[in-house]
Nucleic acid binder design. Structure first.
Lengths: 183, 183
DNA sequence: GCTCACATGTAATCCGTTACATGATTCT
DNA sequence: AGAATCATGTAACGGATTACATGTGAGC
């Protein structure tokens, strides 16, 4: 069976103690979402595939009338995850950034519009930075209580990353304003 | 007609003086590719759609037996581009970064593997930074000769962006090495 | 004669999102 | 009583990549 990146998201979240599709999705939404998103439409079918392949084991844990299927990693699944994390292979990276795309074509806009675009971009990255900042304490707690260091480091990267872009926007905005004044 | 982001890529590249699908793709590959990629499979069908919608005008310019269809922006297309660049709407941003995804789960790896991952990540971002650096002179020439300022600024952002991530990798690598020594 | 750049296109496929459908439990 | 949260899933759709198919012209 072919494992996509989403398969490893699921494997990894199970390793971090999550059990249901719902819990996996909830953790994705406050962690990997910022560099690797996943939706129910991927998670639930993928859980089935991984179970069929023997990488995870599912167990029905209905409570009263509420359905609940809890999964755990099998030794096979654990091995697959560890192999992938450590494999030196090329790291697929992809960015789609509409702000930069507009900026690239911004010679077609007026100075005011150019500056407005930078302000919008900055605001969005600041918002995302703050969103991750709000999540950070949870990751810190996980480190202190469970020794999970990397989720916290990843959150800190995210904060620095969005802050970097926001700062670049500020700086560039300043440059454009100065140029506009001079003319 | 609904315009997707790719439509604007095409409109914008025509505005920058490109005429054929081939030329558009060539410019994309040395400019927006780093934050907004596009393939022939999108470009050629989209050129047709945009022509049908009256946003661009196509003209057959076969040279000898070699087919060539040259497009130019119509006033309608120019307006659509300018409106989009300046419209204040939300800027869709999406990142898929396998390196960070692996890093997030790197508690499952040994210290040596963790450090190896960071080195791989750093190498890839340095490579991309250098790729953009190699492209930069072309963007600079376009600014000096045609007054196109924003492609150059975008390239400079790209260099700073990948350099930032590469530096973060270096720093984090250093931290992990120190921790490994202390234990 | 060969290779590379120029040039256009389509079909299959993949990956992922969105919207929908359904229902139980817990909290206010 | 009503809202929010827990919980599972599918179907339609959209966006984009990959591989394939085809051929010319220019330079070595």
């Amino acid at each position: 069976m072919e494992l996509g990146k989403t398969s490893y998201v699921i494997l990894g979240m199970l390793r971090l103690g999550r059990s249901t599709g719902y819990e996996i999705k909830a953790l994705v939404d406050v962690s990997t979402r910022f560099f690797w998103a996943a939706s129910y439409g991927q998670i639930y079918p993928e859980l089935k595939r991984l179970e069929d392949a023997g990488l995870i084991a599912g167990e029905d844990k209905a409570q009263g009338g509420r359905r609940r299927r809890a999964f755990t990693l099998t030794p096979l699944g654990e091995e697959a995850l560890e192999t992938w994390v450590a494999s030196g292979g090329p790291l697929h990276t992809e960015l789609r950034h509409e702000g930069m795309l507009r900026f690239f074509f911004a010679d077609a806009a007026s100075p005011e519009e150019q500056i407005g675009l930078l302000q919008t971009m900055r605001a969005e990255h600041e918002r995302t930075r703050d969103e991750i900042s709000a999540i950070r304490p949870g990751a810190e707690a996980a480190r202190d209580e469970k020794g999970e260091q990397f989720p916290l480091m990843t959150a800190e990267f995210g904060i620095a990353y969005h802050d970097f872009i926001a700062s670049w926007c500020s700086e560039t905005e300043r440059r454009l304003v100065n140029e506009a004044k001079r003319s």
